[in-house]
Write a protein that binds this DNA or RNA. Structure first.
Lengths: 123, 123
DNA sequence: ATAAAAGACTACTAAGTCTATATACTTTAT
DNA sequence: ATAAAGTATATAGACTTAGTAGTCTTTTAT
């Protein structure tokens, strides 16, 4: 599948898409081939690509605050005591709840669910 | 409690804190009194103030993407079919997981948990 | 061998958001 | 009257995100 085709079908600027695909490629999730007849393909089974990994590559942290992040941790500058901070604990709980869903959801799951309409109650 | 005191104790610029407190006041969570001897106080019982409400006032949406947001919904510009979009469904699941934690966590809970140290495994 | 196709890489711009500051105004206590 | 304290609005600067541009490299077809 070529960048140009995806860009056209999904109405995304080609050059912008290029950068995202490059990140995913460099992280090992995509395979690419240069030259005429080249393009991108998945480098793993859709069952083995989880939303959490894609998000960390393209968006960064899952946690709402840096001090609650697993992979992009950063201490709060003005924090008195991180270890007993109740707000931080709450945000770690939120992170873990998000993480559970994100790491259980694969590309294969997402494709599967495309077939069914969303429950209007959920919106 | 005066803005100046909170600002000093928490090492937050006073004027910056002012704006946040104003938002919380205008949303009905804080009571304020002007003039000498004035200041801020909670307008509700800490048991009845939930993290989700504070976050929506100060940070906006809970969902990671606008099309999955309950209170700050915005349609994706280039989306083919929002109703069957599997990515959106996944993000709605994430939002609901976060929402569960955030709407079960009150200020009272947060204060209560300040007393206990965090589990190092969680970080 | 050459030209065209396609991705790789780097740099840059523009818009928006977030943090913070500035200034002027209103209310209240003494 | 004066000082203390919150209200309100505007603005600046830093940072982030989305998007653009141009050049380089690799591969394929002829």
């Amino acid at each position: 599948m070529q960048i140009a085709r995806i860009a056209e079908e999904e109405h995304i600027p080609k050059k912008f898409l290029e950068q995202i695909l490059l990140d995913l490629r460099n992280a090992g999730y995509l395979y690419s081939k240069k030259g005429a007849g080249g393009g991108y393909s998945l480098n793993k089974d859709p069952k083995d690509i989880y939303l959490v990994d894609i998000l960390r590559i393209t968006d960064g942290p899952i946690a709402m605050v840096p001090c609650a992040s697993l992979k992009f941790y950063h201490r709060c500058e003005e924090c008195h005591d991180e270890v007993t901070c109740g707000i931080r604990k709450a945000f770690i709980d939120v992170r873990d709840a998000s993480l559970k869903v994100l790491s259980e959801t694969s590309i294969a799951n997402i494709i599967e669910r495309e077939k069914t309409a969303i429950n209007p109650e959920a919106i």
